[in-house]
Design a binder for these strands. Structure first.
Lengths: 342, 342
DNA sequence: CTTGATTCCGAAAGCGCTTTCGGAATAGCG
DNA sequence: CGCTATTCCGAAAGCGCTTTCGGAATCAAG
């Protein structure tokens, strides 16, 4: 199997490389007849332009890069596949590539981004799990490379992003519990350097205040977005004197961990203590009892991100590519009015 | 921020591009002094060679591609992150790229591989979830592009692969249950086109035969590798006349689904019916009761695959890059002797 | 001091493709 | 039929880097 190049193709057709190239790329100065002839031959021989050569000549990487967050907790992210799938779907339409980098520290994250930008490896970058103040965003800004973030930062007026309305989601979930009659509502929040975690905490507090309830530091417990840390966070919440009758969790996995702690305390989630998760992972339908949660449409996030980034690359104002998606309450079995004697 | 190129760098140093290039690449015909001088300047200015140009000149993509399996069930794979992380880890040492493609059908899978090979986009390809007879393997063979598969095929003597000893793992799990005294042991298997599923089924049957027990088609139920299908498979197993007292499942998610069905039938997993999963996902520690499973070290699979593929790319005989990893029984709470009156 | 071996760098070609430019062949017009 | 406007393709430059080759300068040896 000899590599079929532009040279061999053109020689076989009795044309110049330039002509064949223009025919393939649909230039108007090639007659319809020869264009057909060239395309047929290309298909037949399975010609595919060498990507490095094309990229060099075009000065275009035809590639976007996804830089994974380095935190190890993120590695088990079940959404990664969907995200990549979504991005890849829109890229493949234009035959662009998706390159994935997995930095191993925060410094490497920044270094990776710099290298991608300087080497012209990609036309744009997408990152997720933004921090309130995110050094990655700073370097991408400095590098002047198009980018989009999955999640806002505290200062993201001028760049492209796709985010869930975290504040509103947490506020809504909390208000829902208040509506059910709860007054002692706890919150297990994520690491507050993550903007989504900080926003959800704010939303939670806002709902309390809004309803005339006092916020209580004892009712706020920290966790990572893992089952284990959700479990331990819930245990501390169970130990306090005036035990909460409900808890809103920063993530479904955290909620599942919390449910485990609740069961171990001899209580049942959704009766003595209501639990609301966040994410809408499939597993939530199958927990015992089934988890009530704030679900967000993740399936489309990847393609959405890709579309928006492509627009920025095409020259659109990044500030015009900002989109907020709502999260919906999915009521299952872990939310109910508080029990009188609890 | 003007892109710093070889030209601008060399001009600034009063040297030729060729000289600078050789200095940077450690050629011996450059004096130590100028080499230092060049490297300093390069670091200072943040020079990074343009990747397209480098690749073209080198005739080397410095990149390997991971082609995701197209099955949607796989998209929620929690291991994807670890896999990519592992691959990326070894690639980044050599400053290679990892490119990810997500085909949307079986035809596209093959087409994607062909395009990668023809366009010289990557030096090698890794795929996972191999089928017994896998068209992807055929095309990679035909394209003569180095590749490695995560999982064997029925005919994989001549290519590189990394695989778990599926047969032995299933045999061992089944034998373990037999050792506990079970005689009615069911198996929920995965889609048999997947080689791992077929192998595990074989191992299960072998263990029975080995112990002088008869295999019973009624005790073999099919599922995907999802919680839902595991649930429904278990329900059919619960309905048969002479109910099994134990079940070995093709995957942990399947086992979790099976446990749900068992609980719904008013039985408790690990008492009336023993359950053994496969994979060793973190969630298994937190199910209720905790899931006994055959665990495999997945964390290192990615880097292992990458190392081996690199060796093949470097010219090693693919047949020399084959590795089998064992799965270990992790006993938790769902395996126990059968109950007398069950 | 001459010759030959080294050391070190400049010059130039080339990787495979795209694109601009100019000119030969054809068509359109009076 | 001659002239200008079009149509279509060939020629050539260039994308930014690597690498081979040759030659000037330096060195050691005679």
């Amino acid at each position: 199997m000899r590599e079929v190049s532009l040279k061999s193709l053109s020689r076989q057709l009795g044309l110049t490389e330039g002509t064949v190239s223009r025919a393939l790329n649909g230039y108007a100065d090639i007659s319809a007849k020869t264009r057909e002839r060239v395309r047929d031959a290309a298909d037949r021989l399975g010609y595919e332009p060498n990507s490095a050569a094309r990229r060099l000549a075009l000065g275009n990487a035809e590639c976007i890069a996804y830089v994974m967050p380095w935190q190890s907790t993120h590695i088990a992210d079940p959404f990664l596949g969907e995200l990549l799938d979504g991005i890849s779907a829109v890229l493949s339409e234009r035959r662009w590539d998706l390159s994935v980098a997995a930095p191993r520290s925060q410094e490497e994250e920044v270094a990776t981004i710099e290298r991608i930008a300087k080497a012209g490896r990609a036309n744009g970058i997408v990152i997720s799990r933004t921090l309130g103040h995110d050094p990655r965003v700073e370097t991408m800004r400095a590098m002047k490379i198009p980018f989009i973030t999955h999640g806002r930062t505290t200062n993201s007026d001028d760049h492209a992003w796709l985010d869930v309305d975290n504040f509103e989601a947490a506020r809504f979930a909390t208000a829902h519990l208040i509506g059910l009659g709860h007054t002692r509502i706890a919150h297990i929040h994520g690491p507050l350097r993550y903007n989504f975690a900080a926003e959800r905490l704010k939303g939670y507090r806002h709902a309390l205040t809004e309803a005339g309830l006092a916020t209580d530091p004892a009712l706020e417990a920290a966790s990572e977005t893992t089952l284990e840390t959700g479990y331990t966070a819930m245990r501390t919440l169970l130990d306090i004197a005036d035990r909460p009758t409900a808890v809103v969790c920063v993530a479904d996995m955290v909620a599942i961990g919390a449910m485990k702690a609740i069961r171990e305390a001899g209580l049942v989630p959704g009766r003595e203590i209501s639990v609301i998760g966040y994410d809408g992972i499939p597993m939530g339908e199958h927990t015992h009892p089934a988890l009530t949660t704030m679900a967000q449409p993740l399936r489309s996030a990847g393609s959405q991100l890709a579309w928006m980034l492509m627009a920025v690359i095409a020259g659109d104002d990044p500030a015009s590519q900002q989109q907020i998606i709502p999260a919906d309450l999915v009521r299952r079995q872990t939310d109910s009015p508080p029990i009188r004697n609890a």
